[in-house]
């Protein structure tokens, strides 16, 4: 990894991770280390395991980890419940944000923020402070305030759902954000708003892992590193120029590469 980050503890360290779903091995030996301040992009064709990797990091129990290690700030992540991971600063922006009728966005966000604050030993957020925080972040994401009183994602358009994910991220200020295809289905205006929201969060103490199928997002969220995932392994890593190469050549060559390393 790069020389400035050598002295710091990695935020995320994945070592030879294997995971299955429904008896099928999806991740077949992932290695990835992410240091504070870095933005990593994970690209790859459909079915390469990108979303599985994101969900395993968040703690989804649909996937069974069969071997390997995932360390978060040096601690074993895999033994932690999803809520503990979130409380410790991991945020997954869902590829398909879930609709929860009957639970308002405001209630949801406040409960989430307070759970994180509690873990840090901080008191519950003051109602007025919370409202002003939420308003600021909504303005950043160019969202209507009326969305706050609506049920979580219920009746939201695809773009609104994705924006809502990044809005939540902006409020919760995670240390490690994993964005799972947050760009797919967005028009260019929404893409710019979402990217701007993500870029606002970039900082020396945070890390962001961007999972995407398309290079387009990476024009707006410029990564430090690009990894190409195919058939459950990272088959190629490089700088931001790798994304552009992929855009030129497509994933066809990558599949060949994956076959070669089997």
């Amino acid at each position: 990894m790069n020389k400035t980050s050598m002295s710091k503890t990695a935020i995320l360290e994945i070592k030879d991770l294997h995971a299955t779903a429904g008896g099928k091995e999806i991740l077949r030996g992932i290695n990835l280390t992410v240091y504070p301040g870095e933005v990593h992009a994970i690209m790859g064709p459909n079915g390469s395991g990108k979303s599985t990797l994101a969900q395993v990091i968040a703690g989804r129990d649909l996937y069974g980890v069969t071997s390997g290690e995932v360390l978060y700030e040096g601690d074993d992540l895999l033994t932690l419940a999803p809520e503990e991971r979130a409380q410790r600063g991991i945020f997954l922006a869902f590829q398909y944000p879930v609709e929860i009728p009957g639970v308002s966005n405001l209630y949801f966000l406040k409960a989430a923020l307070n759970a994180i604050r509690k873990r840090k030993g901080e008191p519950e957020v003051d109602a007025m402070d919370f409202l002003s925080l939420v308003r600021r972040k909504m303005a950043l994401m160019e969202m209507e305030e009326s969305l706050l009183n609506r049920a979580v994602n219920a009746g939201f358009s695809g773009g609104e759902k994705k924006r809502n994910e990044i809005f939540q991220m902006a409020v919760l200020e995670p240390r490690l954000a994993v964005l799972d295809e947050t760009d797919s289905g967005l028009d260019i205006d929404a893409l710019k708003i979402v990217s701007n929201g993500v870029n606002t969060l970039r900082g020396p103490d945070r890390a962001i892992v961007v999972v995407t199928h398309y290079q387009r997002l990476l024009n707006h969220i410029v990564p430090d590193y690009v990894h190409v995932l195919a058939q459950g392994r990272i088959v190629k890593s490089g700088g931001k120029s790798l994304a552009l190469e992929l855009e030129e050549s497509g994933y066809a060559g990558i599949e060949e590469l994956a076959e070669a390393v089997r």
Partner: peptide
């Protein structure tokens, strides 16, 4: 109970 919704809430830090 909707397992997807349950995971979504938990993934935001809300206990099970």
């Amino acid at each position: 109970l909707d397992e997807e919704a349950l995971f979504y809430l938990r993934a935001r830090g809300i206990g099970e």
